[in-house]
Structures are given as structure tokens and as C-alpha cells.
């Protein structure tokens, strides 16, 4: 298995590395956004796929990272790679503050509190307009850096996927999955569930924070609405559900399939696109609640590490 997978991976990564030299501006941007979705879906999977704590407001970390980065660039003139990392740090701090109390909530309460977090952040950003520009948005000085950002975004996507692999194949990952299956039993076995959940939550916030920062720099203009967009949270959830939650490659598969199909369909058939997206959600939930990889795993006895 390994003998096939590793060389194949190397080839794909090498191809992606040279892609900007042959692709059009749009091609690079579309691929960059695919990386973004891989990183977002993979990050959501770390907390929600592994521990079963469904976060309905994960885009809050993306937004926090985007605003932290944009402010660092616009007001304090930090170079963008540093600013994007600062965005990741900001998202982690936010996760620490929010996760500590909220991860003690179970089931829908956690999901709802995360949903609330996203709305609260959006309101705050709109309210403190002296700092953030409020509803007028925040414009960054023009900078042509799409290709460096492409590589940075790709690196984050790879890092998130590698992190998922490392966690899923580790004892730490096993403990997280134990929490998912039965939290009481996990505690009885001596797992410090609160600490484990918080650790997973922090790891799942870092990716969106950095990605948000890169997005802000690439776009050059952010505003509260499109930065704290609930629809983005839903998209990343659907991607993970489609691919297979709790797996390494499920989020990648979901992001690739849904992003590419969206890209092909939406621009030309705006109304069909919305319908299609809804239909996919319903079909996945009804027909393969474990996602494509989950079904394959079950049917062909594939290893847990895919």
C-alpha cells in the first residue's frame, strides 16, 4: 500500500508545485481556494470528526484570523507571512478562551454556542468600526502576491492533512475517538477528556486562522459579512460529511469533489447550483452517513489510516 501511496503523493505534490508556472491567473486562484477548503475541512474534521463535538461556527476562527492579519498588515505594516501566522495565533487564543467553557457543553449545546460565537464576532467587528472599518470593510494596500500565497495556502493544506494523519495514527487520536464513541467510558478509562478535547480544538483552530489571514491578504478587501459567512461553515461540514468524517483523506476528497463540481456548475447555472448543493447534503446524510471513505472502509476493510 505504502509503496503505491507515497510515490503517488509525491507526484501530486510536485505537480501542484509547478502548476503556477503553467496555469492562468484564474487557475492559480481556483487551486489556491481548493487548498483553502482542504485546510478548512481538514481542520473541522480534527475537532468534529474525531471527538464528535460538532462545531457550527468554525468559520469564526477563519474570520478572526482574517481580521487579525488584515489589521496587522494595514495598521502595523507587518509582512504578510508573519501577519498570517499571527492570525493563526489569534484564532488559537480565541479557541482557548471559548473552548475552555464551551467544550464542557454536550451535544447540540456546543454546536449552538459555536454558532453564537460566529455571530457575536461578526457583530463585534461591525461595531468597532474605528478599528475594523465596520460594514465598509477593510482594504489592504495593493500587493501582487498570489503565487507566494498559493504556496503558503498549499503548505497549510498539507500541514493540516499531515496533522490529521499523525493524530489518527497516534494514541492521542485513539483517545479522541474514544471520547466520540462514549465519553463516559473514556473518562472511566482514565482519559482526561477536557484536556484532550481542548487540545483537539486548539489544533483545529490554527489552520482556519492562518488560512483566513492568507485569504485576507490575497483578496485585499474584507468585510464582516463575507468573512464570517455561515455558509462557509456549512460548506466545510458538508465537505467532511461527503468525504468521510474522522478519516485522513475524507476532508480532502470532499473538498476536491465539491469544490470542483461547484466551480464547474455555479457560474453558469446559478439557480441549479443551489439546488444541487442541497441535494448533495440530503443524499449524503440519507444514503451514506459515514461519507464516501466511510462506506469504502466498511465494504473493503480498508485501514483506518486512509
Amino acid at each position: 500500500m505504502r509503496r503505491v501511496v507515497l510515490p503517488a503523493l509525491a507526484v501530486v505534490l510536485a505537480a501542484l508545485a509547478v502548476y503556477p508556472t503553467v496555469a492562468s491567473g484564474y487557475g492559480v486562484r481556483a487551486m489556491l481556494q481548493l487548498f483553502m477548503w482542504v485546510a478548512l475541512a481538514g481542520s473541522w474534521n480534527l475537532i468534529s470528526g474525531l471527538t464528535g463535538y460538532v462545531s457550527f461556527g468554525h468559520i469564526a476562527f477563519f474570520g478572526a484570523g482574517a481580521y487579525a492579519t488584515a489589521l496587522a498588515i494595514a495598521r502595523w505594516h507587518w509582512p504578510w507571512p508573519v501577519a498570517a501566522l499571527a492570525g493563526g495565533v489569534a484564532a488559537c487564543l480565541l479557541a482557548l478562551v471559548i473552548g475552555y467553557p464551551c467544550l464542557r457543553l454536550k451535544g447540540p449545546y456546543f454546536a449552538i454556542s459555536m454558532l453564537g460565537l460566529n455571530e457575536v464576532l461578526r457583530a463585534l467587528v461591525s461595531y468597532f468600526e474605528g478599528l475594523t472599518g465596520g460594514g465598509s470593510g477593510l482594504s489592504l494596500p495593493t500587493l501582487e502576491a498570489t503565487i507566494p500565497i498559493y504556496y503558503a495556502m498549499g503548505a497549510v493544506a498539507v500541514a493540516v492533512t499531515a496533522l490529521a494523519y499523525a493524530i489518527i495514527t497516534s494514541r492521542f487520536g485513539l483517545r479522541l475517538m474514544t471520547i466520540r464513541e462514549d465519553e463516559v467510558a473514556a473518562e472511566a478509562m482514565g482519559i482526561d477528556t477536557a484536556r484532550h478535547k481542548l487540545a483537539a480544538f486548539l489544533l483545529s483552530a490554527a489552520g482556519p486562522g492562518i488560512v483566513g489571514g492568507l485569504f485576507a491578504r490575497d483578496q485585499g478587501f474584507i468585510e464582516p459579512l463575507s468573512t464570517f459567512a455561515l455558509v462557509m461553515t456549512i460548506t466545510m461540514i458538508v465537505m467532511v460529511l461527503f468525504g468521510g468524517k474522522g478519516t485522513v483523506w475524507g476532508p480532502v476528497l470532499g473538498a476536491v469533489v465539491l469544490f470542483v463540481s461547484q466551480e464547474l456548475v455555479w457560474a453558469r447555472f446559478p439557480y441549479v447550483h443551489q439546488l444541487l448543493f442541497g441535494a448533495i447534503i440530503v443524499a449524503v446524510v440519507l444514503l451514506m452517513p459515514r461519507g464516501v471513505l466511510g462506506v469504502l472502509q466498511q465494504r473493503y476493510r480498508l485501514p483506518r489510516t486512509i
Partner: peptide
């Protein structure tokens, strides 16, 4: 959506 607009102009111009 502004973000989608950005992507579309890039598509229009380069693709």
C-alpha cells in the same frame, strides 16, 4: 459576494 466577484474577474481576464 465580493470574493466570488474577485475570482470571476480573474477567470474572465486570464481564462
Amino acid at each position: 459576494d465580493p470574493g466570488t466577484g474577485v475570482k470571476l474577474y480573474e477567470k474572465l481576464i486570464t481564462e
